[in-house]
Design a protein around this nucleic acid. Structure first.
Length: 495
RNA sequence: GGUCCUUUGGCCGAGUGGCUAGGCACAGCUCUGCAAAAGCUGCUACAGCGGUUCGAAUCCGCUAGGGACCUCCA
């Protein structure tokens, strides 16, 4: 079964066929670095990280471009408003680029904690001002834009006479124009749907660049057209972003590209759904956003403990990227336990050796089917939730081997090898999960080894007072000791 | 006001016409010095009403609830 991806543009799943065989060009709208990214933002980047990893797993050479928006977005709904960066900079007495630097570093740190692979190119808006000016000039020359007092607007009505403007989200121009929101007048735009490509800067504006229309800064949609065009060409395979960007940002992006090159940029548009809290979208403006660090420290009124980045990543994997995901303390707790169970089975599997034995055709077939379902599920529009369900069905098989209820030899050696390989491919390479750092601490492992030895001796002598003391006191400091079959003991950090 | 989406068991969530999703929680049993873990078993739901069909959680209609976008936001 080939890879199928849901395309927002056609509103159905399509078989994925790259424009150039073997290669994939992928563009994802990145963060605006004037404040910390919240967990909702992270969901999108984690989703596309897994998509990127899976495409590589399928042997594609992927150019993954994710921009950093460090200029150009406006505050408020008026085009003559301040550039967001400049506004905040004045409040905090910082240079705009200091803000940008601070939050860019913060963003990268969070991405790393979530174990996201960096994109292959991460271009910035401020690094591509001339490209944005060139596109704006081209759109003007093609007659789809007009200049008023140093600001250049995209002429949506002119454009929509020739091309379907609301094609991405299936909206008609009349419906878009109908909204009850009236502008307060005094607007220089010809139509309320027109958006700025280039904005005239006031003299005191901190971030501004020279242009054919005077000093100014780019509008908030042109950067993605400019950068995707520069690094991926006029037409590329995948364009992604959060669902909230589809109706405005991506719609305008398509219009810009069409107005420039008479071509739509991406063949497939992918949109990740929102992370919600109590059924309402997590967003900056509503103030219900969780910061990653609030989770990692547990420092939030809604949380009763801290959760590791891997728990959060796993939590997101349990849902398909196009569904909303509701965030709660209980849901995270469930994910934490689920991940622990899965990961422990995986760890055991990696150490396991194959031993020849009496074959059990039924077991072999069951295992093989579940393994093959991994790829089938991923090929069905990256259904990570289904992959995990198959994995969890294999956990009892692995644990039964651990308990000696099943022998590895009951399945074929090829099946056994494939099982180990696929678990590794999926959990580590595709899903990007990894051990918590604490458990990797070598010194701790040595100390634990020692304590386990002492406890084993005590148990052999039936000195249960000592053996219980060790286990109970470890438990108090958050280390869980488990007695296993055959007198062995294992340990893990209590979660 | 307009456009669109959604409603699954105690909780989180897959699933789009017939076949047990899965996780967490809960209960029982097995194992066990005790505990934990693990294994096995149980809990089997699809907002309401009507329609299509041999058959619907899945398709259609209506009603009700929730949400998103139309304005910066992943």
């Amino acid at each position: 079964m080939p890879l199928e991806i849901y395309n927002t543009l056609t509103r159905k799943k399509e078989i994925f066929t790259p424009l150039v065989p073997g290669y994939v060009g992928m563009y994802v709208c990145g963060p605006t670095v004037y404040s910390d990214v919240h967990l909702g933002n992270c969901r999108t980047f984690i989703s596309f990280d897994i998509i990127y990893r899976y495409l590589r797993y399928l042997q594609y050479k992927v150019r993954y471009v994710r921009n950093i928006t460090d200029a150009g977005h406006l505050e408020g709904d008026r085009d003559e408003g301040d550039d967001k960066f400049s506004k905040k900079a004045r409040l905090e007495q910082l240079e705009p680029m200091e803000i940008v630097q601070r939050y860019t570093l913060g963003f990268h740190e969070v991405m790393q904690l979530f174990n996201n692979v960096p994109p292959t190119i991460e271009p910035t808006a401020t690094g591509h001002i001339s490209e944005q000016i060139l596109l704006t000039e081209k759109i003007l020359a093609n007659g789809y834009a007009y200049e008023i007092n140093g600001t250049v607007y995209f002429d949506v009505e002119k454009y929509s006479r020739e091309k379907p403007y609301g094609i991405l989200t299936n909206r008609k121009l009349e419906d878009l124009l109908e909204g009850t929101r009236d502008l307060d007048g005094q607007d220089e735009k010809k139509s309320r749907l027109d958006f700025a490509l280039w904005i005239k800067a006031k003299p005191e504006h901190l971030m501004q660049w020279p242009s054919p229309w005077g000093m100014g800064f780019p509008g908030w949609h042109i950067e993605c057209s400019a950068m995707s065009n520069k690094y991926l060409g006029k037409r590329f395979d995948l364009h992604g972003g959060g669902m909230d960007l589809a109706a405005t940002h991506h719609t305008n992006e398509i219009a810009q590209n069409e107005a420039c090159f008479n071509e739509s940029p991406a063949q497939i548009w992918m949109h990740t759904n929102m992370l919600t809290v109590n059924g309402t979208r997590m967003s900056k403006s509503l103030g219900n956003g969780f910061l990653p660090h609030e989770l990692f420290t547990g420092n939030h009124p809604m949380l009763n403990k801290a959760y590791s980045p891997m728990t959060v990543r796993f939590f997101m994997l349990q849902t398909q990227y196009r569904s909303t995901l509701d965030f709660s303390n209980e849901a995270l707790q469930a994910s934490e336990k689920g991940l622990k169970r899965l990961w422990e089975a995986y760890q055991f599997l990696q150490k396991l050796q194959y031993e020849k034995g009496e074959a059990d055709a039924e077991l072999n077939e069951k295992v093989l089917k579940l393994i093959n379902d991994f790829d089938t599920s991923m090929n069905d529009d990256f259904n990570t939730a289904k992959v995990l369900a198959s994995m969890f069905e294999l956990v009892p098989v692995i644990n039964s081997i651990k308990d000696g209820l099943i022998k590895t030899g009951e399945m074929l050696e090829s099946t056994f090898i494939l099982l180990g390989k696929k678990f590794k491919d999926y959990l580590e390479d595709i899903f990007g999960l990894k051990n918590s750092d604490e458990i990797n601490d070598g010194k701790l492992a040595e100390v634990m080894h020692l304590l386990i030895d002492i406890r084993k001796e005590a148990k052999t002598k039936k000195d249960f007072a000592t053996s219980d003391k060790i286990r109970n006191q470890l438990n108090e400091i958050g280390i869980l000791l488990k007695d296993e079959k055959g007198g062995e003991m294992s340990w893990g950090l209590d979660v």
